[in-house]
Simulated scan of single mutants.
Amino acid sequence: MEDRKQTSFTFEIDNFWDKEALIRSPNFFSGGCQWFVDVYPRGCGIEDHLSTFLCVANPESLLLGWKRRAILSLVLLNVSGKRLYRTYRDGPPCKTFCAQFPAWGWADAMPLEMLQENGFMEKNKLIVQVNVQVVEVVDEAEVTGKETLDVNGFQVLYSEVGQVTTIFAKHPDVALNFIPKSQLVKTVYMKLLMFLIEKLNKPPRSFIRNELSNARMELIDLTKAGFKLDWLKEKLDEISLERKKANGDGSLSSYGFRVQELEEQVKNLNLKLDTEKVKSAKVLSLEQTVSDLRDELSKEKTRSTTTTKDVLEGVIRSWEVLDYPDLSNEEVE
């Protein structure tokens, strides 16, 4: 059984405020593999925060399908041992590391402004302590493409983890009041949210009226489920406004909408027409093939009947030619 004891790794960063580039710790061992910590003194994705990530060292050297589930926590200390910050409040998170996601961490670990306050940083030195408790080890497994990871309570496919992680990074409170508890229902709602976000990333002029109406209804449904989507509503309102501006004001606006809708309908009908033409051509080809086969079958039947008749007539003629004696009148000796 895998040793599930917690591993605590600590390293010091001297002259912290003089650093701007990525700082990487030495490797340490836990849960059957090597790890290291990346620290971004000026943030990674969030410029006004210290960012820290725990990474699996040399993941390409591990076997196909490898996985590590680990409980993580991060503590920042000054040289006096005073705890400046920790990355969790209600308990450390459990994350899954794998080939697709060999690193997890905290882009907003600590505001730089807080680090600059008097009494926090001493002697321009920061001590980083990472605690890792590996709770599951998979050295090798079959990869099907349907594997999922837990992201803030939602089970999502590996291919969707990046998008979902970005949603929570930009909007940490997006699912705080989410109502459904069923994992299947949660997965469906998360897919709907990702689909709506992708849809609203299109240029405003590419939307037709029905699309915007449908998007607004989807937004209402997601909000009723408990998602906090004020930011998405603002984007939808901006798209609606941009579209109205692009089509002019007053009567010209409705005219522009109608023209765009008709153009879209004509485009869709043309696509359907092309599809039906292909189907029709296939049907005609099949009908011709069936007709040819029927003709050939009729010919074969005729030929077969004629051949059988000729054979029978030949046999009868052969009997007539042969002079068989009448054995019925012979006496038995």
Rank of each mutant, 00 (worst) to 15 (best):
K233L: 13
E47I: 05
Q288A: 15
R24H: 00
S251P: 03
V290T: 07
L284W: 04
S61T: 08
W319A: 10
W106Y: 11
D38T: 07
A57K: 09
K170W: 02
S304Y: 10
K301A: 08
G256Q: 05
G65C: 04
S30I: 12
G256E: 10
G119V: 05
L193W: 03
E263M: 14
S25V: 00
G31Q: 01
P172V: 10
G32F: 02
P203C: 08
D48P: 00
S318E: 10
M194G: 13
E122S: 11
I316F: 11
V151Q: 01
D292I: 10
L327R: 07
F11E: 05
L126E: 09
L64T: 05
L74Y: 04
N131D: 14
G162D: 06
G65R: 00
M121P: 01
E47R: 06
A246C: 07
E263R: 13
D14E: 11
E261R: 13
S254G: 01
I179H: 14
Q116N: 11
D139G: 02
V259T: 10
F178H: 07
G43C: 07
I208N: 15
K5A: 07
R317Q: 14
L149Q: 04
I13N: 02
D310R: 12
N152M: 09
T87A: 15
N247C: 11
D139N: 13
M110V: 11
S318L: 11
Y40Q: 01
S159E: 05
W66Q: 02
N15G: 06
L212Q: 06
D38H: 08
G162R: 04
R86V: 07
L193V: 02
P180T: 05
S30V: 15
L84V: 10
K301H: 04
S240E: 14
D323C: 10
R243E: 01
V134M: 08
R294L: 13
G32W: 09
N131P: 00
P111W: 04
E261G: 12
S182C: 14
A103H: 02
Q129G: 04
T289G: 12
L50C: 05
L62S: 00
F178K: 02
Q34P: 02
L327M: 13
G153I: 01
I46A: 07
V130Y: 03
K277H: 06
D230I: 03
T187P: 03
T165R: 08
M190W: 04
E264K: 13
F154L: 00
K272Q: 15
F101W: 03
D173R: 09
E331L: 08
E264F: 14
E12M: 10
D237G: 01
Q116P: 03
V266R: 09
E330I: 14
E263W: 09
N329F: 13
E276K: 12
E12I: 08
A246I: 02
L62M: 12
A215K: 08
V132P: 06
N270S: 13
Y85F: 12
Q100Y: 01
Q129N: 14
E122C: 11
A175H: 04
V137W: 09
G65M: 02
P325W: 09
A246P: 00
K309I: 13
E296K: 12
G145E: 06
K95F: 07
